[in-house]
């Protein structure tokens, strides 16, 4: 009995001890605490202050003045979300249980994709293999492959099947329009099937200090050559303003492959990798912490990757997809 008392006493002594050792709990619903926390995190870690000429101090002053002690959670969300929108970046979001803030860069360009036009006039009997919707077009001599999201994983078997299926074609069209991004690992999975040698496609630099222009060393991105079934004939990659993040990265990497042509509109951007974090009130956020540079050190991915051939969808004629038509012409020319 005496021993049990000693043990119980020691356990409670240690439980209370840890509360004294650690700093105070930072959980808080105070609007000023949450504002300061978010503003500071963006100030210290966001990667595009300088490139986008953002005066973050002035933005902080402007939005802090909108707060008041009794502000509702809904209004606090609006203030914080509007402040983040000043970063003009779709990799910047504030997540609360009742709303998510977005920038919606795709609204800055025309809509260039109509699935119904493709289904009714090009792909009469599509096949669905893994993440791909695909089929022969133009009298069976061109393969059309639609990849709608980089969040849809790709595996070796799927790529082997699809590329074998179209091995006899004159060229391929890879439709990336409306692909909002996802896992960048899938970029290498696809592109290595079209590479003939290990290719440097760009560099990543990550914010590494409190100064807005503090970045770590360049980290190279390479695309290797797949040892197996590949496709080395012309590839047309279709892009639009909704091609964002990993999709922009894909288009950006394509620039280093001479047999690949980008057709359509400039991509939406999203060259920086976003991380994630949490506010003292439990809401979460993310924002870009890195930049993507091309092989010559040029920094344009955040504004979007321009196509090699610019074509827009003609909404007065829904029987034709001008972007696919242009891609077919280009393949047949080569």
């Amino acid at each position: 009995m005496k021993h049990s008392i000693v043990i119980i006493f020691a356990v409670f002594a240690l439980l209370s001890c840890e509360n004294m050792i650690f700093e105070e709990d930072k959980a808080s619903n105070d609007p000023y605490v949450n504002f300061e926390y978010l503003w500071n995190e963006v100030d210290l870690k966001y990667s595009y202050h300088e490139l986008k000429k953002i005066d973050w101090d002035a933005i902080g002053t402007k939005y802090k003045s909108m707060l008041y002690p009794e502000i509702t959670e809904d209004s606090l969300f609006t203030v914080l979300a509007t402040m983040l929108k000043e970063l003009r970046d779709d990799h910047v979001n504030l997540f609360s249980p009742f709303n998510i803030s977005t920038y919606e860069v795709y609204l800055s360009g025309p809509e260039n994709f109509n699935l119904r036009t493709i289904r009714e006039n090009y792909l009469s009997a599509p096949r669905y293999t893994g993440a791909f919707t695909h089929g022969f077009i133009n009298n069976q001599n061109i393969g059309y492959i639609m990849y709608s999201s980089f969040s849809d994983d790709i595996d070796e078997e799927t790529l082997n099947h699809v590329l074998t299926h179209y091995s006899g074609t004159k060229g391929l069209i890879l439709d990336m329009r409306s692909n909002g991004g996802g896992d960048p690992a899938n970029i290498a999975m696809i592109l290595e099937r079209f590479a003939t040698e290990k290719t440097l496609v760009g560099y990543n630099i990550t914010r590494n200090g409190p100064g807005h222009n503090d970045f770590g060393p360049r980290e190279p991105f390479y695309i290797g050559v797949h040892k197996g079934i590949n496709y080395n004939k012309p590839l047309m990659v279709l892009t639009d303003r909704s091609c964002y993040s990993a999709c922009t990265f894909f288009a950006f990497a394509c620039k280093q492959f001479p047999q690949i042509t980008l057709v359509g509109d400039t991509t939406g951007g999203g060259g920086g990798f976003p991380n994630g974090g949490q506010l003292p009130n439990g809401w979460t956020y993310r924002f870009s912490i890195s930049q993507l540079l091309d092989v010559d050190g040029n920094n344009y991915a955040e504004q979007g990757v321009a196509p090699d051939i610019r074509v827009n969808f003609d909404w007065t004629n829904l029987n034709n997809d001008e972007i696919i038509d242009k891609a077919i012409d280009e393949i047949l020319k080569q």
Binding site: D183, T206, Y222, G224, N275
Partner: peptide, 16 residues
């Protein structure tokens, strides 16, 4: 972690 971190896979040749 260093100053900033995230866990996206590195893309380095065929190895991811």
């Amino acid at each position: 972690p260093s100053y900033n971190y995230f866990y996206f896979s590195e893309i380095d040749g065929n190895s991811v």
